[in-house]
Amino acid sequence: MNIVVCIKRVPETADADVSIGKSGKDIDKSGLAFDLNEWDSYAIEEAILLKEKLGGTVTVLSIGGEDSNESLRKCLAMGADDAIRLTDPAFEGSDGFVTAKILAEAIRKIPYDLILTGTQAEDDGYGQVGVVLAALLGIPHAALVNRLGVQDKNVKVHRELEGGVEEVFELDLPAVLTIQTGINEPRYVSIMGIRKVAKKEIKTLGTSDLNLKVEEVGLTGSDIQLEKIFLPPVGEGAEMLEGKPEEIASKVFDILKEKGGLA
């Protein structure tokens, strides 16, 4: 079983004080911590669990600058066999469609039975790349997979729907699955573990290695473009309760009495 996992390194913004960068087209990323995209951490764990059960190899791919090596190494430390970084200045500005195109060209060069991606990236939130990748490779796919089992030449998957209902499908292999959080418990990687793979080679491939033309990638190849970003109105409608913790607590108590029928 040869499994390919596509992963992305993203800034951690949930806890951060986010501000708009100078270009007006992205946030100011200086001072932000980065990590493996949450959905991808479940995808790589699922691949390693399958490998442990069925044998074979796990190859991780990421499009990104040298910083992305950090996330690729994390995957190696978790148990992936190979890591490839797809990088080229021409990739700058690629949308979800072009991202999938670059990944597809890289994957054509390696043997695969199963391809896993995250359901969505925390930063752009397209929820698009995995499914487009399947279309470009001409193989079946299922999105939002929260359970899977490989049987010989096919894979049985549960797709998570609204309200916690699931839809079960069987797909012929090779196939692309986009993985939903909660499917497993991603293993912890120790600093020692990372250190062990610190010297492992991470191959890099660019436009010319991938049979892609410069005009097919980056902004020129993209379908959509980001014009500008802005902070959504915050606190709209919310009355802020301020003061010392005790004062806030009294206000909350009054609200509960009034609105919640607190006895």
């Binding site: 902070l231 915050v234 606190g235 919310a238 009355e239 309760l241 913790p245 607590a249």
Partner: peptide, 30 residues
């Protein structure tokens, strides 16, 4: 704790605070 958290746009009342500091006070107060 993050004044820019999107949840505040969906809230009637907002409290910008460290939950570990405010929740025990709320509990004791109630």
């Amino acid at each position: 704790k993050d004044p820019k958290a999107p949840i505040f746009s969906a809230a009637t009342y907002g409290i910008v605070a460290d939950l570990f500091k405010i929740v025990p006070v709320l509990k004791d107060k109630v």
